[in-house]
């Protein structure tokens, strides 16, 4: 069994990228005065009717927007925060009418569930967890995983929600002896969970038993990797990582995403593909999202770049608009749209 070694994704020049592959279909202006931090799309049900809604997060305000005709949006709920600012939205797959948010300054201090009272339609927020939280991820099957505490008392906890969004049960996973940076689901394997660690390891848990199955060391060339997508095929584990610390290498350009393959039985692994910036583009990974076989990233240059992970190269580059750098980008979970946000609260919705 041998596998192709790291191949550098093609590096087309900017001019050869198809700018028409992104079509602006709607714009959403958040009038809140504070800095815009995140966006997400989710299903929300009102009066027995489920709609694909958009959630926007500013530092102290999270809003839910429902679609009107002709790609206009109406704000229907707003949750306010007074003491701790919002850091990120944490979507929980398979849950309707509930979204989680992580709050904190530099590190996450709280995770809260945002929902609405079924009696009077008023906005409600429930504190799910507080403390020194290092990483959080919403999982399929209405679950939320988080790691908290310091190295000697690190806790990895899975919370399962009931259909109505209320927290139902809690379970703990065996902690690795190193700080967890990010979590990642393994597509199609509901009982498997991955974590990346500060020591450049990828760990695997069995979520049913809580067992820590394996710790796999990956190439030290890229530190602080974020796990965006993982799937198992033919006994091998394929993982898409992003690298915010990757340095530009003359021959390769700037690697933003990487596909690695791991044999979980032996922990041996190798890079399969590096997804680099096209020639003429500079910058490192700032923030990004992967859905199906498409990866999108905001670069430190303020530009958004998109890769087709199967084709192996960058397919679109979206420069800053109105002289405003992009600050975050998400694939919509409800359709094939790209949600791109700027710090001033403007959200642009593109069809890709």
């Amino acid at each position: 069994h041998s596998i192709e070694q790291t191949k550098v994704a093609d590096l087309p020049t900017c001019d050869s990228l198809n700018p028409g592959s992104l079509q602006l279909i709607s714009k959403l202006k958040n009038p809140s005065g504070s800095c815009s931090v995140d966006v997400s799309a989710m299903w929300w049900e009102r009066a027995g009717f489920k709609e694909p809604c958009i959630i926007t997060a500013c530092e102290y305000v999270v809003s839910l927007w429902r679609p009107l005709d002709t790609w206009q949006w109406e704000k229907i709920y707003t949750w306010h925060f007074t003491e701790v600012p919002v850091l990120q939205i944490v979507p929980v797959p398979d849950v309707c009418n509930l979204v989680c948010v992580a709050l904190g300054s530099l590190e996450i201090r709280e995770i809260r569930a945002l929902l609405c009272s079924s009696e009077d339609e008023s906005e409600k927020q429930v504190l799910l967890k507080s403390g020194n939280i290092k990483a959080v991820l919403g999982l399929t099957g209405r679950r939320l995983v988080s790691s908290s505490g310091t190295l000697c008392d690190q806790q990895v906890e899975i919370m399962t929600f009931a259909e109505d969004g209320r927290s139902k049960e809690k379970q703990f996973l065996m902690p690795p002896e190193e700080t967890i940076l990010t979590f990642g689901e393994v597509q199609g394997m509901q009982e498997a969970l991955l974590g990346t660690t500060i020591m450049n390891n990828i760990v695997i848990w069995n979520l049913k038993t809580g067992q820590l199955l394996k710790k796999m060391h990956i190439d030290d060339s890229y530190q602080a990797s974020v796990c965006h997508k993982a799937y198992s095929e033919m006994g091998l584990l394929f993982v898409v990582l992003s690298h915010s610390c990757a340095k530009e290498r003359e021959a390769l350009g700037s690697p933003v995403f990487q596909l690695i393959v791991i044999n979980p039985k032996t922990t041996l692994n190798v890079g399969v593909m590096l997804y680099c910036l096209p020639q003429g583009q500079a910058g490192r990974f700032l923030e990004g999202d992967v859905k199906d076989h498409f990866a999108a990233a905001v670069l430190t240059s303020g530009t958004i770049a998109i890769w087709d992970l199967l084709l192996g190269h960058c397919t679109a580059v979206l420069p800053p608009i109105s002289d405003q750098n992009w600050s975050f980008v998400k694939w919509s979970g409800t359709d094939s749209h790209l949600l791109a946000g700027q710090k001033d609260g403007n959200i642009f919705i593109y069809r890709y």
Binding site: Q211, L212, L213
Partner: peptide, 23 residues
Amino acid sequence: CSGADLGPISLNWFEELSSEASL
């Protein structure tokens, strides 16, 4: 491209690692 040996592969790696971890 050159090959890289990742060692013996098992299609049931998740079940096997779970059994090993239970021992």
